[in-house]
Structures are given as structure tokens and as C-alpha cells.
């Protein structure tokens, strides 16, 4: 579903991403681990076609994102570290607006409220302005947008950082459900525990390179941490 082939990006001579080749199949949850500046966000920006690759290609559903930018975004949902919404609109209005722009202007109020319920937003919050929302609530609206859009691929950029454990847990549960439904997930994260919990595979990145890929079923949490630190040290 998500595919990077020899994907490389230089910014003014600095290599942000070097020769990344990976593939995320439907139902996969691929977690990119790495320090700041390892190239995780660059990878996601390349898939979103927010930046142009220096070489190589990123494909979504087999389509090159630079050539069919709008088409590839139909399959995609993106949830950043903090989902950004319009403060002066309510959660429901935000969801309505974004899903309408994603091509789902046919959604009824009942359907939209149902999406918000599925992601666990308190019912009374739907009609409150987003200005009053906590970060966890915003993330939930972000997932609701992805649900409404019926995205086949999800790009997540540190979606749980700064969430309290309960909210992070709920988030992981939602992710597991989406993965069961056959959504391909690419998630950048710092959180080894979360990666082990919700990921099917993890990739460790360092200085723009993918240095190690593991199946999460193969390793325990302690092993993952050890391997991660080994790669960070040398």
C-alpha cells in the first residue's frame, strides 16, 4: 500500500533521507524509530508530497506521489503530532469540513457523530469549539477524519507524544482496529513501548538511513530497547 523505493532527500547538501526502501502492506503497522533528525518526518513529508524527493520514488497504492499527488491523497490520512483544527469551529464542524473536503460531503450529522463516538470523544464535546479541546481530543478528531475518509493508508507523525497514558492506550486500540480492517499504517515515533505494542514491524533510523528492520513478534520489549540503543551508540 505504501512503498518507498530508493527514496532520497537532500536539503542544501545535507542528507535528510538516504536510499530508503520499504513497503507497508494492508494491515501492517510499521513504526519508524529514531532520534530527532533521523529522517522520520522527512519520510512522511515525502509520502504527502509536501517535499520533493531528490531521487527515488514514493508510491501509494502503486501511484507515484509526485505525479499523481491529488489522486494518491484519496487513499491517505495524515495525523501529525498535534492535529490542527479550526479553533472557532466545533469538533463536529471541523470533522464535517475536513471530511467534506476529503470528498465525503454526503456524511450526515448522525454518521459524523458516530465517527466521533467510535474514536471515543465524549458526546458533549462534539458541539464545543475546538479552542477548548485537550490534545487527546484533537487527536481523536484527527482519527475520526481518517475514519470518515475511509483511508486505506495512515501516516502518523508521533501521534501519541504528549498524550496521557490512558489517551495513548485508547489511541493504540484504535490503531489496532484500523489495522485489522486492512489499513496500512506508517508511524513515526519515539516511544519504543508503543511501537512494540501496536506495531507489526519496527524500523530503526539513524542519520537518514534505515539501519534495522524487525518484526515485533520476534523481539521482546527489552530486546528492542537494547537493539535500539546499540544502533544509537556506534
Amino acid at each position: 500500500m505504501l512503498e518507498a523505493v530508493h527514496l532520497t532527500k537532500h536539503y542544501n547538501g545535507v542528507t535528510a533521507l538516504e536510499d530508503l526502501t520499504l513497503r507497508v502492506n494492508p494491515g501492517d503497522v510499521f513504526c519508524l524509530l529514531g532520534a530527532n533528525g533521523a529522517g522520520k518526518t522527512t519520510t512522511i513529508n515525502l509520502f504527502l508530497n509536501f517535499v520533493q524527493p531528490s531521487s527515488g520514488t514514493a508510491r501509494i497504492n502503486g501511484l507515484d506521489v509526485t505525479e499523481q499527488s491529488l489522486e494518491t491523497k484519496k487513499y491517505l490520512a495524515y495525523i501529525p503530532e498535534t492535529v490542527m483544527l479550526y479553533k472557532n469551529l466545533t469538533g463536529l464542524e471541523n470533522l464535517e469540513y475536513f471530511s467534506a473536503l476529503a470528498g465525503r460531503s454526503d456524511c450526515t450529522r448522525v454518521q459524523l457523530l458516530d465517527f466521533l463516538k467510535q474514536v471515543g470523544l465524549q458526546p458533549e464535546a462534539a458541539d464545543q469549539r475546538v479552542g477548548t479541546y485537550s490534545k487527546g481530543m484533537r487527536q481523536k478528531v484527527g482519527i475520526a477524519i481518517a475514519l470518515a475518509k475511509n483511508a486505506r493508508a495512515l501516516l502518523l507523525d508521533e501521534p501519541t507524544s504528549g498524550l496521557d497514558p490512558k489517551a495513548a492506550n485508547e489511541f493504540s486500540a484504535l490503531l489496532a482496529r484500523l489495522s485489522q480492517d486492512g489499513v496500512a499504517v506508517l508511524m513515526a515515533t519515539h516511544d519504543l513501548f508503543r511501537a512494540k505494542e501496536s506495531g507489526t514491524r519496527v524500523g530503526i533510523m539513524r542519520q537518514g538511513k534505515l539501519v534495522r528492520t524487525l518484526e515485533t513478534t520476534e523481539v521482546g520489549h527489552a530486546d528492542l530497547e537494547r537493539i535500539y540503543l546499540e544502533h544509537m551508540h556506534d
Partner: peptide, 11 residues
Amino acid sequence: QGTLRQLLSLG
């Protein structure tokens, strides 16, 4: 605000 990313990611 970051909503532009959100908008453009929707296609």
C-alpha cells in the same frame, strides 16, 4: 496553525 498541512493532506 498547521491546518494547511491538514488540508493539503486531504487532497
